[in-house]
């Protein structure tokens, strides 16, 4: 997995790429999220549009991120979820847990609604 972050105003967009399969991926994600929160960011978008596939460890990484952000008083949303990830969210019923958006722009705009 590769991870790239950028800021859009007060929103951090973290783009994941490749195969999200746990192991070292978890540490990479957690460290970057902590850095954003330490910088005072409370609004986070996870861009999944370039993820090839994700397994249950990847879903666990996202749940851990959601819990961390919420505990810090913030919000985390998912953007550009691929059909495969949507199907995994349905199978696991995590569709009830995450706010998902078809575009990064839509996810960013949702924070001010």
């Amino acid at each position: 997995m590769k991870l790239r972050s950028e800021r859009h105003g007060e929103v951090a967009v973290m783009e994941l790429r490749g195969k999200v399969m746990g192991g070292p991926d978890s540490t990479v994600f957690r460290d970057e999220l902590k850095k954003q929160l330490d910088d005072g960011i409370k609004k986070v978008v996870i861009d999944l549009g370039r993820v090839d596939w994700m397994n249950s460890s990847g879903l666990g990484i996202l749940i851990g991120g959601l819990t961390t952000v919420k505990n810090a008083g913030g919000e985390m949303k998912l953007a550009r979820t691929t059909d495969k990830i949507k199907s995994l969210l349905m199978i696991t019923k995590l569709v009830q847990v995450f706010d998902t958006f078809d575009s990064v722009e839509g996810a960013i705009a949702s924070f001010s609604e």
Binding site: G60, I61, T67, T92, Q96, V97
Partner: peptide, 21 residues
């Protein structure tokens, strides 16, 4: 059951469910 409401926020336990699908 990882889809049980009380387990939904668990970070693990979904592997077998996904494989079976």
């Amino acid at each position: 059951d990882p889809t049980d409401p009380e387990n939904l926020l668990s970070e693990s336990g979904r592997g077998l469910l996904i494989i079976r699908h």
